[in-house]
Design a protein around this nucleic acid. Structure first.
Lengths: 199, 199
DNA sequence: GTCTATACGCCGATAGAC
DNA sequence: GTCTATCGGCGTATAGAC
């Protein structure tokens, strides 16, 4: 926790501006269509050299951004797990979070659901080996053991449940659905929940 | 139809080799990590200049590849529609096709499900405005009208049904699932079908 | 029509003045 | 520590020889 506070403190305002600008541009135009000049302009700093005072390379910048987003998601999931005992409630909490993020921080969700991270961060773990992902699989596993969910492999349970959730959010983010994510949440939950609930 | 035959005839062997090599590399490393040198090597031709005899630019090459894949999918869907009358049977046929493609032409499916086409083809229609996509929505719409499917908007039906199907295929393609797509097909169909069937 | 050689621009990265 | 100026390299694209 001390470490966490320190990380936050050592991240200067400028650094945050750069990361925020990069996030916006990466989801908008893609990593390779975004030059350091673009990031410099969007971040409101004067030269690209400033970026190099905070990040060793463009790739390291992206890696930092990626890590921040996964960490933040990870913290939120831990929080949800702490506040809810039953796996069904934990899943509900995660779905709530994802829908809220889609409306309130669409760039973050687009980075998570649409951007192909391994294309510019070849050393990044594949999505399904990331900590948040593994935690979700564990929750489903616990739900099966506790008898709340029907007897399937947690992997398949994930595929079915989050297949629906993530696809709906993706369609909101890409503008196929014209309402806010919030509008679809209850229907999405119902459909997703029905694929895994023990009846 | 005459036009179609002519298109096929005017596509030389070399051109096909180039397109095939490009497809492989684009899904493997991404469009921007693939140079014309890479394509030249993979296609077994001698110089990059040869590529320019067949395509005006690298981007046009990618556009042609994209169009070919969508066209081919489109033809297959028309075929399925012709051979099956009921919307449920048509959906079944499309699911069969997608699972078969995942095992037999994973590059094509990866291009369809994972590659972010608009990043290098900014003028390409968004996924949900493409012909195959629209046809699928229409099938679901027809299923609702015919009373086979429960009363939902075709858009939401698509999101739920193909959310499951596509997510499972994506997880097969990325190696999260260790078996061939075929292994998961019946469970996938069942789960997806249950989200939209009228009970 | 085929290939060599090269032009040209863009971008990531850095050296070095202040 | 802040910015200017620039380097080096890569990759697309083309000119022109054969």
């Amino acid at each position: 926790m001390d470490q966490e506070i320190e990380d936050i403190q050592t991240q200067s305002e400028v650094q945050d501006e750069i990361l925020l600008a990069a996030l916006k541009l990466f989801v908008e135009k893609g990593y390779f269509n975004t030059s350091l000049i673009d990031i410099k302009d969007a971040a409101g700093i004067k030269t690209t050299a400033t970026i190099y005072q905070h990040f060793k390379t463009k790739q390291m910048l992206a890696a930092q951004l990626h890590a921040n987003i996964l960490d933040s998601l990870n913290v939120s999931i831990d929080d949800i797990k702490r506040k809810n005992e039953k796996p069904s409630e934990q899943l509900r909490g995660i779905v709530d979070l994802l829908f809220k993020l889609t409306d309130e921080a669409p760039d973050v969700m687009q980075f998570l659901l649409i951007v192909n991270v391994n294309e510019f961060l070849p050393d990044a773990k594949p999505r399904h080996e990331s900590t948040p992902f593994i935690k979700i699989i564990r929750i489903i596993e616990a739900g099966v053991k506790a008898g709340e969910l029907r007897s399937i492999t947690p992997q398949l349970g994930y595929a079915e449940f989050f297949g629906i959730i993530e696809n709906i959010l993706r369609l909101v983010l890409t503008g196929f659905f014209d309402r806010k994510a919030d509008f679809y949440q209850s229907q999405a939950w119902l459909a997703a929940w029905n694929t895994i609930v023990k009846k």
